[in-house]
Design a protein around this nucleic acid. Structure first.
Lengths: 226, 226
DNA sequence: GGAAAAGCATGATAATTATCATAGTTTACG
DNA sequence: CGTAAACTATGATAATTATCATGCTTTTCC
């Protein structure tokens, strides 16, 4: 079993504030999982009782709305933590986490993490800052959803996907999402999403080759996103 | 100057975890303000450098969107804290806080609060839980904005206003908002908001008497909100 | 107390987006 | 390797929402 010390999650997350001793303790009680594409790490309403470290892969955090449609709130990838909010609030998960590709995650039980808040102030502050960052993002997200058109949201989301997850060597977006998933990120019907992608394609802003999406005109897309 | 000990904010916020000594220290360096209706407590982009305790009154937290319209994210009232996120992230305010009625607030400088995170774990955990609560609310808000119609959002918002801020003796909503403000809570044009309120009025779900709004049929409104 | 400003209301019209229908294309998998 | 299922695409139409215009009512403030 690895000792967590070299783990990419430690490098990029709040866990970087942990010392050797604390890491060893965690390494001892963590469990590792392989999650296949399409499978959940946890689901809305479930008691999680710990946090997940994403060692590899990307997942979507989504929530079922009253009308039965899924809304994707956020994508989470390699190096990030999952389930902090539920653990701290001591509540069931508010969102489902579903793998978009095969994933490697570690689970650290609540009983190991909670004492650290008392022992290690730097760690506490890291977690607080991370959650504050999420809160700011969420507030901004509300503004976008409320004030931007679907077209603007699509352009913005494409740019965001490129910035956050990058592109393959050929220039196509790395995150492989279906049209339905893109639709549920921007909060629109799948058909509307497809239609707008076609529009962007026709106006030369993007290029569609099967499932691959190439962003051809970043400036133009930024203009579309306002 | 009051000693904070009996303050309503202490009773309802994260500050309840502070002991006598800590409270006295804070009481010594706090400053009190009267904010008139329509005036800002702080504005988007401003460096706040501390937290505000809302001793009386209600304010809106809002953000200017790219298209020049204001989006109200949240209302904050008596007993709550303001500015925690900016302080912890050490960033300028993401939202503006504007008084909806005359307010009484106290300001506690960052330099007094930050050390408490290290000294008083119960306080730290309270703050974390509060922010986690805000994050959950914000995520749910995103889902509503993305998936519900304006009509559904209006019904939901009216119910929320009643639950959170209550009604006057005559049964009308306590929070006095203009139609424009209600519109910018639900993310719609003022005219659309007015039209839908008229609709609800005609169908007997609510009653409009000047600026006053009476919720006449809670069940019906819940049905409208889905 | 009265003028100006802000707020409320409603009609007409246009733009945006959803829904339903149909069909072609790709992917998964027995 | 071929068939079912999932995904992508597009047209037609309806529903929702925004925008512009106009007039009325209430509030503000000199």
């Amino acid at each position: 079993m690895s000792k967590c010390e070299q783990c990419i999650v430690r490098e990029f997350s709040s866990l970087k504030a942990l010392n050797k001793e604390e890491l060893l303790k965690i390494a001892d009680c963590k469990s590792s999982y392989i999650i296949k594409k399409g499978e959940p790490i946890f689901e809305e309403g479930e008691n999680v009782n710990g946090i997940f470290c994403v060692r590899d892969g990307v997942c979507k955090l989504s929530k079922l709305s009253a009308n039965g449609k899924d809304q994707i709130i956020k994508l989470v990838s390699k190096g990030e933590l999952l389930g902090q909010r539920s653990m701290i609030s001591d509540e069931p998960a508010n969102l489902s986490a579903i793998a978009l590709e095969d994933m490697e995650v570690c689970f650290i039980p609540k009983s190991e993490i909670m004492p650290l808040f008392n022992q290690n102030n730097a760690f506490s502050m890291n977690v607080m800052r991370a959650i504050c960052g999420d809160l700011k993002e969420a507030d901004d997200h509300v503004v976008d959803m409320a004030q931007k058109t679907v077209r603007e949201r699509l352009a913005e989301t494409l740019l965001h996907l490129k910035d956050t997850f990058g592109t393959h060597e050929d220039g196509s977006l790395k995150t492989q999402l279906t049209r339905e998933e893109i639709g549920s990120m921007i909060g629109t019907a799948t058909e509307s999403c497809i239609r707008l992608l076609s529009d962007f394609n026709k106006s030369g802003l993007i290029e569609l080759k099967g499932k691959k999406i190439f962003l051809k005109d970043i400036k133009g897309l930024k203009r579309e996103a306002e």
